[in-house]
Design a protein around this nucleic acid. Structure first.
Lengths: 129, 129
DNA sequence: CACAAAACGTAATAATATTACATTGTGTAA
DNA sequence: TTACACAATGTAATATTATTACGTTTTGTG
């Protein structure tokens, strides 16, 4: 069966997420890909975790949702601006912020590994209207 | 019955969390307070949400866990240093970082409401050993 | 071809959180 | 001090998110 399939589930999940304009939960992905043979939660989570390891997507902790990495191989901490009105999420990288986080950690003897920065609010479209 | 109780559930939950040296999940709190009459998830979540509104505790998104606010009525964004070895979490407030976030948002026309900053790594105790 | 590693199938279950609806307790103002 | 509104609680059911365990199939490589 696999011999006849053109893509792996990870590829399907990545492609599907790329088509979205907001992060999706694992179960939303499952629904969206059911007709493509993605039929169980495990399948989705396996794909998501693989893509996460490969740096191809991010998990938005405060939404329990997943979104493609918009700037592959970036260094420094990604920052997510999350619009609470239209659900759009924009990924940004800012070197000052990354450096300040390092500096703050140094202060306290903490050794940082990975940082989660998620800013909730209104995107420019939604805040003007 | 309530007339004979000394505390509300919210007070019990807050007191219990203060005794902990790491954030607890809602269900850990439920277990810990079962003998004090906290017997259902709803009860815990009601208390947690009330305390959250009052600014008396924080939710650590990346742990699905809850911890007391260590610096009441702080302004600016709290930053959590989370030790992945001993689970200790330290809350800090840093004005530089808060300003960074404002600046980044201004750039893109985003109107920030609340920010989540969680840094995983090793605390000073665990990184030296 | 043989083998190891990656990908997948399937079922069950764990962990986290919410909803709905009824009841009881508390503060306060007439 | 009674009446009322609001806060707190009780209870059951269910929704949502995620993991575990175990077996099979496919793929790439020497």
């Amino acid at each position: 069966m696999l011999a006849t399939t053109r893509f792996t589930h990870a590829e399907r999940v990545l492609k599907y997420l790329k088509q979205q304009k907001r992060p999706l939960t694992a179960y939303e992905i499952l629904e969206g890909l059911r007709e493509d043979g993605v039929t169980a939660p495990t399948t989705v989570y396996r794909a998501l975790n693989k893509l996460l390891e490969d740096g191809q997507l991010h998990r938005i902790e405060s939404l329990n949702a997943w979104t493609v990495c918009s700037e592959l191989h970036h260094t420094g901490t990604p920052i997510f601006e999350i619009c609470d009105s239209c659900s759009n999420v924009r990924e940004r990288v800012d070197s000052r912020l990354s450096m300040n986080i390092k500096a703050i950690s140094l202060d306290s003897g903490f050794t940082p590994d990975r940082s989660i920065i998620e800013i909730h609010g209104l995107c420019s479209d939604c805040s003007t209207s």
